[in-house]
């Protein structure tokens, strides 16, 4: 499969693997303790700049913490929250979509009205309101990430289920005497999974960006924990004097979302049989 990949897709995929490994290992690969303050070497520049130190490759922040180590644990947090949030959203949305597609009628109408309501409100508004009411906690934050994007899965899964259950093979399987669970679990889900997986690659970057935005506003991950968005937010005040604090997490976010997007496109092409001819 690799040899047929175009080089950009391959690079993006490899980058994502690297990110995943680093995020998984977290503190173990960090060169310094990411939480240890060292006021003497605060705001040291990256190693290649004037005044940089070979001890801190990407420099230090306002409390003298090693930026690279902070980025690594921040990455762990951001990727973890994004994956967990995506999974919750995908699961809830897909289940809602299946329920809607199975029952149709008034059940479908009610569920899809809820979906439409959420789609018509800017999500950041919903997030800010909930955070204002319930205060900030890690559990609520992850739940919020899960609430983001479920409606897209619900809509997508509903449409796919409605069309799949009218296919002759579904009718044949029902007429064999299969239960609905068997029809949906063993036949329809495997057939529509590819579309849902592609949707995952669209939601992950969106959730990373949402996490970034909320943390940047100080409503997300709270210090001393770090996330990419939170480090970026901290760097905001030092853009003039210590640009690296904001630039590196920004660059990381940019590269991750771009890579997930590129890999997602490749997956979509791969799953879409109508594009097969063009590929060959």
């Amino acid at each position: 499969m690799i040899h047929r990949m175009n080089p950009i897709t391959a690079a993006a995929a490899m980058f994502l693997v690297l990110i995943a490994v680093v995020a998984l290992l977290g503190e173990y690969v960090a060169p310094h303790d990411p939480y240890k303050q060292n006021l003497l070497s605060r705001l040291t520049g990256p190693v290649w700049t004037e005044g940089g130190s070979s001890e801190f490759w990407l420099g230090t922040d306002r409390l003298g913490r090693d930026l690279l180590s902070r980025l690594i644990v921040g990455l762990q947090m951001s990727v973890g929250v994004a994956l967990l949030g995506t999974m919750i959203g995908a699961l809830v949305g897909t289940v809602v979509g299946f329920v809607s597609g199975h029952f149709e009628g008034w059940v479908d109408n009610i569920l899809m009205t809820i979906v439409d309501i959420q789609l018509s409100l800017p999500f950041i508004l919903i997030a800010l309101t909930l955070l204002a009411f319930f205060g900030n906690s890690m559990a609520l934050f992850i739940l919020l990430m899960g609430m983001y994007g479920w409606e897209t899965y619900a809509r997508l899964a509903r449409g796919l289920v409605l069309s799949a259950k009218r296919q002759a093979y579904s009718v044949a399987i029902v007429s064999l005497g299969a239960t609905s669970g068997r029809l949906y679990g063993r036949h329809i889900l495997p057939n529509i999974a590819s579309a849902l997986i592609v949707q995952l690659t669209l939601t992950i970057p969106a959730i990373i960006l949402l996490e970034t935005a909320l943390s940047f506003l100080g409503l997300g991950i709270q210090p001393p924990d770090a996330s990419l968005g939170q480090i970026l937010g901290e760097g905001r005040d030092y853009l003039g004097s210590a640009w690296w604090i904001a630039v590196f997490p920004g660059l990381a976010i940019f590269c991750i979302t771009l890579s997930v997007g590129v890999v997602g496109d490749a997956l979509r092409d791969r799953f879409d049989p109508t594009l097969k001819a063009r590929r060959n």
């Binding site: 093979y169 005497g177 239960t179 036949h187 057939n191």
Partner: peptide, 23 residues
């Protein structure tokens, strides 16, 4: 009903859509 369904079976027109492609 599910039990009784085995008494009657159906074969459709389009052989390309009447089998689960992933089975």
């Amino acid at each position: 009903l599910r039990k009784a369904r085995q008494r009657v079976q159906i074969i459709f027109q389009d052989p390309y859509t009447s089998l689960d492609p992933r089975q």
